[in-house]
Amino acid sequence: MISFATRAELIKIARVLDVDPDDLNYLADASPAALREFRVELARTLDKRYQALFARLGKAGSLVPAGVAAKIATTFFGPALCGPIAANLPPAKAAGLIEQLPVGFLADTARYIDPDVAAPVVRALDSRSMSPVVQELLRRGDHVSLARFVNALTDRQLRQIVPQVRTGDDLLLTALNVETAQRLDALLALLPDDRVAALLQAAVDRDLVAESIPVLAAVSPQAQQRLARIAAGLGTEVSAAVAAAAAAAGEADLAAAFPASR
Score class of each variant (00 low, 15 high):
residue 1 M to Y: 06
residue 5 A to G: 05
residue 10 L to S: 10
residue 11 I to T: 14
residue 13 I to K: 05
residue 13 I to T: 10
residue 13 I to N: 09
residue 14 A to T: 02
residue 15 R to A: 04
residue 15 R to T: 10
residue 19 V to M: 08
residue 24 L to H: 14
residue 25 N to Y: 15
residue 26 Y to C: 12
residue 29 D to G: 15
residue 35 L to Q: 13
residue 38 F to C: 07
residue 41 E to M: 13
residue 41 E to S: 14
residue 41 E to G: 12
residue 42 L to A: 10
residue 43 A to N: 15
residue 43 A to P: 11
residue 44 R to S: 15
residue 46 L to F: 12
residue 47 D to R: 14
residue 48 K to R: 15
residue 55 A to L: 03
residue 55 A to G: 11
residue 56 R to A: 13
residue 59 K to W: 13
residue 63 L to G: 06
residue 65 P to Q: 01
residue 65 P to G: 06
residue 65 P to H: 10
residue 69 A to R: 02
residue 70 A to L: 04
residue 77 F to G: 13
residue 78 G to S: 13
residue 79 P to D: 04
residue 82 C to E: 12
residue 82 C to G: 10
residue 84 P to N: 13
residue 89 L to F: 09
residue 92 A to Y: 07
residue 93 K to P: 04
residue 95 A to Y: 12
residue 95 A to F: 11
residue 95 A to W: 04
residue 96 G to S: 08
residue 97 L to E: 09
residue 99 E to Y: 05
residue 101 L to V: 05
residue 104 G to N: 13
residue 104 G to Q: 07
residue 104 G to H: 06
residue 108 D to A: 14
residue 108 D to K: 01
residue 110 A to E: 08
residue 110 A to L: 10
residue 112 Y to I: 09
residue 113 I to G: 04
residue 114 D to H: 09
residue 115 P to K: 07
residue 117 V to C: 04
residue 119 A to T: 11
residue 120 P to F: 01
residue 121 V to F: 02
residue 124 A to V: 03
residue 127 S to D: 11
residue 128 R to H: 14
residue 131 S to Q: 15
residue 132 P to D: 03
residue 133 V to C: 15
residue 134 V to H: 05
residue 135 Q to P: 00
residue 135 Q to S: 13
residue 137 L to V: 04
residue 138 L to C: 05
residue 139 R to A: 14
residue 140 R to L: 07
residue 140 R to V: 05
residue 142 D to G: 08
residue 142 D to R: 01
residue 143 H to L: 08
residue 143 H to P: 09
residue 151 N to H: 13
residue 153 L to D: 04
residue 161 I to D: 10
residue 163 P to M: 08
residue 167 T to S: 07
residue 167 T to Y: 08
residue 168 G to Q: 09
residue 168 G to F: 05
residue 168 G to L: 06
residue 171 L to N: 07
residue 174 T to Q: 12
residue 176 L to D: 06
residue 178 V to E: 06
residue 179 E to C: 12
residue 180 T to A: 12
residue 180 T to G: 07
residue 181 A to V: 00
residue 183 R to Q: 08
residue 183 R to W: 00
residue 184 L to D: 08
residue 185 D to V: 00
residue 187 L to T: 11
residue 188 L to E: 10
residue 189 A to D: 14
residue 189 A to H: 03
residue 190 L to M: 11
residue 190 L to R: 12
residue 192 P to S: 09
residue 199 L to A: 12
residue 201 Q to F: 03
residue 201 Q to T: 11
residue 201 Q to W: 00
residue 203 A to V: 01
residue 205 D to F: 01
residue 206 R to F: 03
residue 208 L to R: 07
residue 210 A to V: 02
residue 211 E to M: 04
residue 212 S to T: 10
residue 212 S to Y: 08
residue 214 P to G: 04
residue 219 V to K: 08
residue 221 P to F: 00
residue 222 Q to I: 13
residue 223 A to G: 05
residue 224 Q to I: 03
residue 224 Q to A: 02
residue 225 Q to L: 06
residue 228 A to T: 01
residue 228 A to Q: 00
residue 229 R to S: 12
residue 232 A to L: 01
residue 233 G to K: 00
residue 234 L to V: 01
residue 237 E to C: 12
residue 238 V to K: 00
residue 239 S to W: 00
residue 240 A to H: 03
residue 242 V to W: 01
residue 244 A to F: 00
residue 244 A to P: 01
residue 246 A to V: 00
residue 247 A to T: 09
residue 250 G to S: 05
residue 251 E to Y: 00
residue 252 A to T: 13
residue 259 P to V: 08
residue 262 R to I: 09
residue 262 R to F: 02
